[in-house]
């Protein structure tokens, strides 16, 4: 993991690039991607994987750390995997990104109301209520999750988990008809 952006580990460091990798939905495909990264010494910052709208394909969204290896080499080596169908590098300015976080936060006494208030401002959901803790979920742009996590930290995060980001290219004109149809891009 890059230490350059230590105060904001989930922030957009210029060492982080987003690759969306369309793969054939077959057993072991994630292991192939992971072992390629391990063998060639590439760093994965975060990774999310799920089937696409076409069940024959899965999409892997990888945030790669390119402080040690040029992105071009990573992309070319990835593309040598037979199961990899397409690789797109997403420019953060031209893509929509989402991530989900769940966090269990200390919320006893007076603090409970303040945590609920912060959650309200961020439009987060309260998933579970304990005697002195709350479990909260928030989805949104990674930067928004960073900000929320930073605020919660002040109250005491007991446990938290983020999914890693998923992303798709921004539509040129959002209202354009049928633009999202067709095989995954």
């Amino acid at each position: 993991m890059s230490t350059i952006n230590a105060n904001n580990p989930y922030g957009d460091s210029h060492h982080h690039h987003i690759l969306t990798v369309l793969v054939q939905n077959r057993p072991g495909v994630l292991a192939r991607v992971a072992s390629l990264f391990a063998r060639r010494g590439y760093n994965i910052f975060s990774l999310a994987v799920a089937p696409t709208e076409d069940e024959n394909y899965s999409r892997i969204t990888i945030v790669v750390d390119i402080s040690a290896t040029p992105l071009e080499q990573i992309v070319k080596q990835l593309f040598k995997l037979i199961d990899v169908v397409r690789i797109t590098e997403l420019d953060p300015r031209k893509s929509v990104e989402r991530e989900l976080m769940v966090a269990t936060v200390r919320a006893d006494g007076d603090q409970r109301a303040r945590v609920i208030e912060v959650a309200g401002i961020f439009e987060a959901k309260i998933l579970a209520v304990g005697a002195d803790v709350l479990t909260i979920s928030l989805d949104g742009e990674p930067q928004k999750l960073d900000d929320f996590e930073e605020l919660l930290r002040g109250y005491g995060i007991v446990e938290s988990q983020r999914t890693g980001r998923v992303a798709l290219p921004k539509l040129e004109r959002e209202a354009r008809k049928g633009a999202t149809k067709g095989k995954a891009s």
Partner: peptide, 14 residues
């Protein structure tokens, strides 16, 4: 076998 040989083959398949 496919796990062990993954990094030494161009491709493998179970």
């Amino acid at each position: 076998t496919v796990g062990i040989t993954r990094s030494v083959t161009k491709h493998n398949e179970l």
